[in-house]
Design a protein around this nucleic acid. Structure first.
Lengths: 180, 180
DNA sequence: TAAAACAGACTGATCGGTCTGTTTTATTTT
DNA sequence: AAAATAAAACAGACCGATCAGTCTGTTTTA
């Protein structure tokens, strides 16, 4: 289970990322994390104050990772309209890669209440970031069209999770074509 | 806390429904349910075999309740296109009523894995039911348009949960207008 | 008088988190 | 290069609390 190639802090974060994402936050215990990370109990609490702190680190890590992958993926093309189409192809590739586990941020959102302001804010910021990123591809179009694309993108991601199938993304791509 | 007007089994289900929906499945313990339902521990396990059985009952109960409210709400109008607009108004009223807690089914979906086949199937069936219901309002339109409306409906519900704001629903209504 | 609901003790397991003390690793000084 | 030292990671006991679920026996209801 131990992969001593990387340092303990990284192993903890990567393990927590995988488990929080695939099992959920409350369904994942500290014991499982330290066990699968091959790390001492005390080491986890040296690097992260609490389970919630670890969740925050997970969301921040995931945020950076997701946008890095996203930008790389859509950066392969230059034409704006083609770039939007590629954005939906990105969803397809992520569904394949991560077995239709959906959006890590929306999954955590389902487990928390608005009283968890730190987590709630991180999730909102991530999505606002995505919204801005998509909007920036077609800067001269109406706000309504930008929102339209964003909503289709979101439901494509969430509904393919639900059905464990690419059809929502494929259909969303066709809808996008009618809008551009 | 006890509202002995209804029988224990109903109190358990209604309490579990409220707690699972507002706090999530794994974050809600049996102790809290029996306490807030004002019911004996043994009574819960006479009516429901396990916590998962209770979750199944919750989803089935919610399914019936949600569609009953939905049909009543949109049944107030007869014109198909107007009925679709009213469907989005229903989301607005539910957001107000339930404090932007989003979709009970998608929330549970975030907490489980495809291995939980029973729960997963119930959730998929609920959404397929919604998909069919929306599609039946405009039976003579293309499959693409039906899916389009469904995807907008879904993201309107989920994104208003995220932002705790009605704007996604209001924007989705405008998008719908451009599609009809 | 029988069924249902009650209170609450009890199980073993696990929860998140703290603490002690040992071993390993890395850096610095000789 | 070898020895000294400081920092990091280690194993694992331990904490009180809670978890889901079982069981006994009493009280209420029908």
């Amino acid at each position: 289970m131990k992969q001593k190639a990387v340092d303990p802090k990284t192993r903890i974060l990567e393990t927590a990322t995988r488990l929080f994402y695939t099992q959920g936050y409350h369904a994942t215990g500290i014991n499982q994390i330290i066990q699968e990370a091959g790390v001492a109990r005390a080491s986890l609490y040296t690097h992260y104050q609490s389970k919630e702190e670890l969740c925050i680190a997970f969301l921040n890590f995931r945020h950076v990772y997701w946008f890095k992958c996203f930008r790389e993926f859509i950066g392969a093309v230059t034409d704006p309209e083609q770039q939007l189409m590629t954005a939906f192809d990105f969803l397809i590739s992520m569904n394949d890669k991560e077995d239709f586990r959906g959006c890590a941020f929306m999954n955590i959102l389902s487990e928390i209440s608005p009283a968890d302001t730190t987590l709630y804010t991180i999730i909102q910021h991530h999505k606002q970031n995505l919204r801005d990123t998509l909007a920036s591809i077609l800067p001269h179009h109406t706000q309504l069209l930008k929102d339209h694309i964003y909503l289709l993108f979101e439901s494509a991601m969430l509904e393919s999770h639900l059905y464990r199938n690419q059809w929502p993304v494929l259909q969303a791509k066709k809808m996008l074509k009618t809008l551009l």
